[in-house]
């Protein structure tokens, strides 16, 4: 669900807040879930409306998708199964160069901020972001090869 919301919000930091709101709504409306409807489908629908409500309130902020594109993104299929993705990610991280692996782990798994990581490595945040993007792109190419 977090991933679904992140896609609609273009990975905005508010993803967790919206997820929390969606969880509250799911709990409050749990009696409305009809058991002949798949739970996840219902949950995604709730997430979609929560995300849309968030975007409506912040339509003037930067990097907010237009409504027509949000609709398109919400109806696109999920690309990877969780299991396939986890397996491919582990395999590709194991294959990645030491430097790429270290940097990706620091940034994403250990959660170091770009600013603090850049300071420790004596790089500008911009240079570090570019490196991270390049490594992520390589990782993505590897994952696509693994899962295709």
């Amino acid at each position: 669900m977090r991933c679904y919301i992140a896609k609609i919000l273009s990975n905005a930091p508010a993803t967790d807040d919206v997820l929390q709101e969606a969880n509250k709504v799911l709990w409050a409306k749990r009696d409305e879930w009809q058991q002949d409807t798949p739970f996840l489908k219902w949950a995604y629908r709730v997430c979609f409306f929560q995300a849309k409500a968030y975007l409506r309130d912040r339509s003037r902020e930067r990097l907010v998708f237009d409504e027509d594109l949000v609709e398109l993104l919400a109806t696109d299929e999920v690309e990877y199964s969780d299991t396939d993705l986890q397996r491919a990610l582990a395999a590709c991280l194991a294959k990645a160069s030491d430097t790429a692996r270290e940097l990706l782990v620091r940034r994403y798994v250990e959660g170091d901020s770009v600013k603090s990581l850049a300071e420790r490595l004596a790089l500008s945040p911009n240079a570090l972001s570019q490196k991270l993007r390049r490594y992520r792109y390589q990782l993505q190419v590897c994952i696509e090869n693994q899962t295709s």
Binding site: A6, V78, Y80, L85, V109, R136, Q140
Partner: peptide, 16 residues
């Protein structure tokens, strides 16, 4: 775009 976000989320979710 979907794949990129899915990988990004999976990376963040990955534990040590």
């Amino acid at each position: 775009y979907h794949r990129t976000i899915e990988i990004d989320q999976a990376l963040e979710k990955m534990s040590l």
